[in-house]
Design a protein around this nucleic acid. Structure first.
Lengths: 231, 231
DNA sequence: ATTACTATCTCACGAGTAC
DNA sequence: TGTACTCGTGAGATAGTAA
């Protein structure tokens, strides 16, 4: 889309950095070459091409040469900048999983009903989950990868606790939608016996009833994540 | 500075735009090639190189290939983005002039003492100027160019007026510093007899006295301008 | 010291094609 | 359909050098 040649971007950026937008800045091709990690000859060619394309103006005052960026040059850089910015920001704010429903009761079902957890669910998620988890077997490797990548996203942390006899590990909750309809939370347990290909979900409702599906049915889970903003 | 090859930037940006940051996104090399206005072969090579450099991960699930950008890939793009951003923002927020002081009284001195102007100076600049302007002859062409480029910057506008006999043109004022010490305003007159190589300044003080200089002395004038921010 | 020409080289790209 | 090899071409780099 940009008419500006890719190889000229760094050169123009360097001129901006040197303050050449509004003032004519004295510059030598050899120093410019060093700045862009290219040869003096390359810098010279860049300046010639940038000039003939109307992105910069040059002024010879005796032996010295000064350079200033034109409005066109500024506009072009802004265009590229905006394109990059929107690319970096446009990525969707969810992580998606596809898999099939397995076994009625996950290992989590029992633990998730313990008071040490339900009290926290009530205050942090806003509800006490239906006693029973939805277990989904992920079929493709990409979704197993996606599960691992959840770690980089902020989660609602439900802390572990002890009942005097033993301790129970933390639970990370990721608010999610099942089949784009039912609100739920994907949970990652500190201590799990599942392999990586199974995800477990809790919800206020009985999810299987709500979506009218049972073991073997295919489901889609979408976890919303905050896209990181550019600093 | 970035290790990422220049030619890969657009490819990586396209992957970002397709949402490949957190999810594995299915993509064909031919569609990617079209998006980046290159051939299928080029896109294929880009993906291979990006992968071996650790900027993306690829996953083959049967016939389909999915791509996800790694943390390293994200970091690298952010780095480039930040570099561009700071380049565009770093340009100095002033326009500088160098020249020598000429003739004691500029043509402006008389007009600038007229009540139609001084009333406006008082309200818009905050003071009534010393009766006498500082005239500076610019020696290099770059400064004459810089003078012309002042037009793109916002100025304090002092309107013209009529005294019944004749009309007097507007005056554009650009707050400035003389030799980095004395506060003044560079003035551009609607009607001037000067050629482009002379700039005129007004100030609350007698500038020549303040900086202890006289005709023939070299001075530096700095006009502050608002750098345009990126949208 | 500069800038920028000419010659040379390297490697990114696209064409053709195997799988 | 796909991906990715080899190979030829040329844009863009550097080296040498003139002005």
């Amino acid at each position: 889309m940009p008419e500006l040649k890719l190889q000229h971007i760094l050169t123009l950026a360097e001129l901006f950095a040197k303050g050449a937008r509004y003032n004519f800045i004295p510059i030598t091709t050899s120093s410019l070459g060093k700045s862009i990690h290219k040869s003096q000859q390359a810098a010279s060619k860049h300046l010639l091409e940038l000039e003939s394309d109307g992105y910069i103006e040059r002024l010879r005052t005796g032996p010295k040469v000064s350079v200033r960026i034109t409005t066109k040059g500024h506009a072009e850089m802004s265009k590229i900048f905006s394109a990059l910015k929107s690319s970096l920001e446009t990525f969707p704010s969810y992580v998606e999983f596809k898999g099939v429903i397995i076994s009625g009761m996950g290992e989590g079902a029992y633990y998730m009903s313990m008071k040490g957890y339900t009290k926290q669910f009530k205050s942090k998620l806003g509800y006490i989950p239906f006693p029973g988890t939805l277990n989904v077997k992920l079929k493709d490797r990409e979704f197993i990868e996606a599960k691992r990548s959840l770690d980089v996203h902020p989660a609602i942390m439900v802390n572990g606790f002890s009942d005097g006899k033993r301790t129970y590990g933390w639970v990370k909750c990721y608010p999610a939608k099942v089949n784009n309809i039912v609100d739920a939370a994907l949970i990652l347990l500190e201590r799990t016996h599942h392999d990586d290909s199974i995800i477990e979900l809790i919800s206020k409702e009985n999810i299987k009833k709500s979506i009218k599906l049972s073991t073997g049915s295919q489901v889609t889970i979408r976890v919303n994540v905050k896209p990181k903003t550019i600093q």
